[in-house]
Computed example of a mutant assay.
Amino acid sequence: MAKQDIQIKTEDGIAKAGLFRSATAPSSKVAIILYMDAFGPRPALDQIAEKLAGQGYAVLVPDLFYRNAPYGPFEAKTAFSDEKRKAVITGLLSGTTQDMTIRDSGAFLDALDAEGLTGPVGTVGYCMGGARALNAAATYPDRIVAAASFHGGNLASDAADSPHRKAASIKARVYVGTAGVDRSFPPEQAARLAEALRAAEVDHVIENYAGMAHGWCVPDHSVFNATGAERHWKRLTTLFAETLE
């Protein structure tokens, strides 16, 4: 497995990113953009990207907080146990809007093109990345054919930039995996998102992972659950196998 560190020019600066490729599929032109959780690029996300790259995809993991670099690094298990670190992360989250990431996603797609990855694209996001993966699919529907969110928050909130408001623009197949109980994506939001996707005739699945807590998929998270993570992995690879290949 090869990781290439690249720099992506955006409207607001330079975003660092990791690009993972499998040596066994060097000619593949399909790619996945992995939208990070609140703790930023780190080995745990690299691990997920490497596993996806092992399926024959190129996987881009951009730093969505690049406007505030340098920062961190943060350890997911302990990041919120210290009030100063918690305040920094909260500031990074509030200072990196959905609209910023939507604009950045155009640059991410251009970066994939520059690397010869001109085929269909899938997106997957964890935590804060979940909404961004869906918003990217809505904004670039002619390129993004699959979008997945795992323990994504505020997918159907009252905010103007909530992904459910853009459901009519999505052409991708959508998969949403939710934690059993998640204050950032309560049942009323799940129902609102489902209705928006149905009304827009988007091919979608919203699945509740009962017993899982917010963050269960990411290996360095305090609530990581190996059984739930494996289930998420099967759903994710099936989605991409049926849409990207």
Results as ranks from 00 to 15, higher is better:
Ala146Trp: 08
Asp182Arg: 05
Asn225Gln: 03
Val176Asn: 04
His204Gly: 08
Arg198Thr: 15
Val181Thr: 14
Val223Arg: 03
Thr178Gln: 09
Tyr175Ala: 15
Arg173Pro: 13
Thr178Trp: 00
Pro186Val: 12
Ser157Asp: 02
Thr227Asn: 01
Val181Met: 00
Ala138Thr: 11
Phe150Ile: 10
Val202Lys: 05
Gly152Met: 07
Ala160Ser: 10
Asp203Leu: 02
Asn225Tyr: 01
Asp161Ile: 06
His232Thr: 14
Asn154Leu: 12
Pro187Gly: 14
Gly152Pro: 07
Ala213Gly: 03
His204Ser: 05
Ala168Arg: 15
Ser162Asn: 10
His164Thr: 02
Pro186Leu: 05
Ile144His: 09
Ala156Glu: 06
Glu201Gln: 13
Ala167Val: 11
Val176Gly: 04
Gly177His: 09
Arg143Gly: 01
Thr227Asp: 01
Ala137Trp: 02
Asp203Lys: 00
Ala200Gln: 06
Asn208Met: 12
Ser162Glu: 09
Ala200Arg: 06
Ala167Ser: 12
Leu155Ser: 00
Arg165Asp: 09
Gly153Ala: 12
Thr178Val: 14
Gly211Gln: 04
Leu193Pro: 03
Asp203Thr: 00
Ala200Lys: 09
Ala199Lys: 12
Ala138Trp: 05
Val205Lys: 11
Asp158Leu: 13
Phe150His: 08
Val202Phe: 11
Ala138Tyr: 00
Lys166Ile: 02
Glu230Ile: 02
His221Asp: 01
Ala226Lys: 02
Pro187Tyr: 12
Asp158Cys: 10
His204Ala: 05
Phe150Gly: 15
Glu195Pro: 11
